[in-house]
């Protein structure tokens, strides 16, 4: 008699699976078998040699991409970030960067111009005075850092989607890519859907005062639906593009979507 292994006493597991499969409708049966393949893929994660860090990293990057796809599928990209009363504002609102405040860009507002590049009809550069004349709105929202801390602030500026419309940007493009004046050249891509989100803002004021140096003078991009590092400060140019051009933190391994 052939050697049999018994998972459940008195029951031959091979025959049990055969019977169970027969009881399944055809569609489910196929998915069950296909599911076996992905379960096998899962053992790669558990069985992978962590010492061989490159294979682990590749796998983790793949899962991160998978997470992005799942998020895009189940979440509403236009969901609004919660807003707060003025009494909820965090005081003082923290300065945060990969350098000290003394090393923050010290920009002369009279010389500064916002450069506009890429898939736009009007590539003219904008002076600060010209930008200040655009209609502005205020938002009190929570800034959440990838590190976990958070703070509530009050930002005033022009909705980015209004500006993109004004310059005739091709909003079917994939990204708006921001470059900044920070040392080491900070930059960050923003997916177009988030760029067109009603709360995404070209910020010129903090707490109704001209944006101070600590918070990104002369212009910050405030994206309350993204983690803090996707909210660039000291912006000097924006480019509407279909190419993924990477970003300061994104290139080091933070998830580029990082939407909240």
């Amino acid at each position: 008699m052939a050697k049999r292994s018994f998972l459940i006493p008195g029951v031959d597991k091979r025959l049990l699976i055969k019977d169970s499969l027969k009881a399944m409708p055809d569609f489910t049966r196929r998915r069950f078998i296909a599911g076996g393949a992905s379960l096998g893929a899962l053992t790669l994660l558990t069985g992978c040699d962590v010492v061989d860090s490159s294979s682990a990293e590749t796998l983790l990057a793949q899962v991160s991409k998978f997470n992005d796809a799942v998020q895009a599928f189940i979440f509403n990209p236009d969901a609004l970030a919660p807003t707060f009363p003025e009494s909820a504002i965090t005081k003082p609102f923290p300065f945060n960067a990969y350098y000290d405040l003394d090393d923050a860009p010290d920009i002369d507002g009279k010389d500064w111009k916002l450069e506009v590049r890429g898939l736009v009809d009007n590539k003219k550069s904008w002076t600060l005075d010209e930008l200040y004349k655009l209609p502005q709105v205020n938002q009190i929202t929570r800034h959440i850092c990838v590190e976990g801390w958070s703070a509530i602030g009050s930002w005033t500026g022009t909705p980015l989607r209004d500006f993109l419309k004004l310059i005739g940007a091709d909003t079917r493009a994939k990204y708006v890519w921001f470059q900044c004046a920070d040392k080491d050249g900070y930059n960050s891509p923003l997916d177009m859907r988030s760029a067109l989100h009603p709360q995404t803002q070209m910020t010129f004021k903090y707490a109704s005062e001209i944006l101070p140096r600590a918070y990104g003078f002369p212009m910050k991009i405030r994206v309350p639906t993204k983690l803090g590092f996707k909210n660039p400060k000291y912006v000097v140019s924006m480019e509407v593009t279909n190419d993924y051009k990477g970003g300061y933190w994104e290139d080091q391994g933070y998830n580029s979507f990082s939407g909240s």
Binding site: L60, W249, Y254
Partner: peptide
């Protein structure tokens, strides 16, 4: 931090 987040958001499925 970046690596920790990748691990956290992968193992969360499990």
């Amino acid at each position: 931090l970046g690596g920790g987040l990748l691990w956290h958001f992968a193992a969360m499925w499990l």
